[in-house]
Design a protein around this nucleic acid. Structure first.
Length: 538
RNA sequence: GGGCCGUUAGCUCAGUCUGGCAGAGCAGGGGACUUUUAAUCCUUGUGUCGCAGGUUCGAAUCCUGCACGGCUCACCA
């Protein structure tokens, strides 16, 4: 709406922001109208006969092949209709070639003046088409003498005029078959701000989001097949919880009540386990009011599942099986279960490594943290070995120090899929303790390519201990990042929650791992950006 | 929030070190060309050099501040 009114004002106000090229095209559009051609027609004429570009190309190549083999009957190629966006133009006087791209790929249109193609008027308009215009055309398929599958246009219509020039790159086919892109639209800021342009012009960007959809579909397939029920829980929550992060705050006017955008689904999903739903999962958006980075966006997509009667080890098996299923469904067969990520080759189909957190830290830092069971002794030892600076240590409880050691010394090294397990209790307020070790809980995290991917535990179901953990959190957590005491959650546990295994995973990060993107922004259609300052959108 | 780097034509980018007419390719305009494909050939226009100050005879270039972005550190399970 706003863009439309913007354009409106730009048309009525000639000194506004239209560029030379845009004014040029606007004039062209008005000429079309004057000559009785609607630049934005109501509908396509040929939709019902539509053939995808890729299918048309396949069809004509197959036919050419069978003719070369001599196996061809007299299967003359039928007339087809193809529609798409003009992405290349080569005008040659009384003949013209257009590259046309649709959702499936590209095909070439060829038109010329003459009995077997277009009359003079129609051809004149055909030559006037701009890069970015949408058209539909009907005609017979053939292969040019340079071997290009082509539609010989005998009837065509403009479907939508493009005013602003798309930065369409030229593609050069090298002798070795590779394609070099010239002047590609590549400025990251512009690509994210005007993602529609990025998608229109960069096919590999579209491919990322196709893969993303496949990942999510595969996750659903897998969990559905294991008897999980997909559910939806509130995004607007009166008490946020389930993770240590600062929330976004909003307000409901009629209730006159502040609400938080959820930072996790955890506490609501476990209420459902109390309610006998036994196996539930949710795929949805979490919101965390924290800094942004290559792996953090203020809103991100999370998968959480909870399964009654499972423990951490069952969940580990299930998670491994799930990720391998996704890899199998998403990666092309020739990839053989491998993907590239942050300069590493990830082998998805090999058994995941499983390492006790204590051993991982001991190996990387020389510290056996079980020998330093209190904050002071661990801090002293970390300082003695110059592993962390006093600045980093300030205010951190014992568990947070261990966590910092993971982040600084362990995480980056975990390239192949790896589960680290058994975590400090005081950074895990919803996990059950390991028998006989009150400082440690049954919790694991999964790492791939040096990036944390998922987090899971044997869920704490003792309402009295849960209440105690909430209170401990409230006293020693830093400002704004405590899990607030959720009395209703404790009340739910009072009715009895079975032994339960739970799991959470950042889907954006998983997509990064399958698409070899180094930044979370590359796998989000519209990543968070600072608001554009300049008025007028341009 | 800190550090580093960047912002020049519609797109991709030179030019900034060492101040002296604002540049190239593509895209666009005019012309030629009936199987081209980064089409080609002839011809032609293209600018708030991110913004605001300052230094200077003179600033895209040097200085200061600001805005936006990228990377990175911190924060962040």
């Amino acid at each position: 709406m706003e863009i439309a009114s913007d354009l409106q004002s730009s048309i009525s106000n000639p000194c506004m922001e239209l560029t030379e090229v845009e004014r040029e095209r606007l004039a062209k559009l008005e000429q079309l109208r004057a000559s009785g051609i609607e630049p934005y027609p109501l509908r396509s004429q040929f939709v019902r006969q539509r053939v995808l570009a890729a299918d048309a190309v396949r069809q004509v190549l197959a036919s050419a092949q069978s003719q070369a083999d001599g196996t061809a009957g007299d299967d003359a190629l039928s007339e087809v209709a193809v529609m798409g966006r003009v992405v290349a133009r080569r005008i040659m006087g009384r003949a013209a070639f257009l590259g046309v791209e649709d959702g499936s790929g590209k095909i070439q249109f060829y038109a010329r003046v003459g009995d077997d193609s277009l009359d003079a008027t129609s051809f004149a308009h055909f030559k006037e088409l701009d890069l970015g215009d949408f058209i539909e055309a009907k005609g017979a398929l053939f292969i040019t003498k340079t071997g290009e599958p082509t539609l010989r246009v005998t009837d065509w219509r403009l479907l939508a005029k493009s005013i602003s020039p798309l930065p369409i790159a030229k593609e050069e086919k090298m002798p070795d078959g590779s394609v070099v892109r010239h002047s590609a639209f590549s400025d990251p800021e512009l690509r994210y701000r005007q993602r529609y342009v990025d998608l229109a012009v960069n096919p590999e960007v579209r491919e990322i989001f196709v893969t993303r959809a496949k990942v999510i579909k595969a996750l659903r397939e897998f969990l559905d097949s294991k008897g999980f029920l997909e559910v939806e829980t509130p995004v607007l929550q009166p008490i946020y919880g389930g993770a240590a992060a600062r929330p976004f705050i909003t307000h409901h006017n009629q209730l006159d009540q502040d609400l938080y955008l959820r930072i996790s689904f955890e506490l609501y999903l476990k209420r459902l386990i109390v309610g006998n739903l036994e196996r539930v999962y949710e795929i949805g958006r979490d919101f965390r009011n924290e800094g942004v980075s290559f792996k953090h966006n203020p809103e991100f997509t999370q998968l959480e599942f909870y399964a009654a009667y499972m423990d951490m080890y069952d969940v580990m098996d299930l998670a491994e099986e799930m990720l391998q299923y996704v890899a199998h469904q998403v990666l092309p067969p020739q990839a053989e279960g491998k993907s590239q990520f942050r300069g590493h080759t990830i082998h998805w189909l090999q058994p995941f490594k499983r390492i006790k957190l204590r051993d991982a830290i001991l190996e990387r830092t020389g510290i056996d943290y079980t020998r330093f069971p209190d904050r002071q002794s661990l801090a002293d030892e970390v300082l003695r070995r110059r592993l962390l600076t006093p600045d980093v240590l300030r205010g951190k409880p014992w568990g947070k120090i261990v966590d910092s050691l993971i982040g600084d010394y362990v995480e980056k090294e975990l390239v192949e899929p790896t589960f680290l397990y058994e975590y400090p209790r005081d950074i895990s307020p919803f996990a059950k303790s390991v028998p006989g070790d009150p400082t440690t809980v049954e919790r694991f995290e999964g790492f791939i390519g040096g990036v944390e991917l998922c987090n899971a535990f044997s869920e704490l179901n003792d309402p009295f201990e849960q209440r105690q953990r909430f209170l401990e959190e409230a006293t020693n957590a830093e400002e704004g990042e405590a899990n607030p005491v959720d009395d209703d959650y404790v009340r739910a546990l009072m009715y009895g929650m079975p032994v339960t295994g739970g799991f959470g995973m950042g889907i954006d990060r998983l997509v990064m791992m399958f698409t070899n993107r180094d930044s979370i922004r590359e796998v989000l259609l519209f990543p968070a950006l600072r608001q554009e300052e300049r008025a007028g959108l341009r």
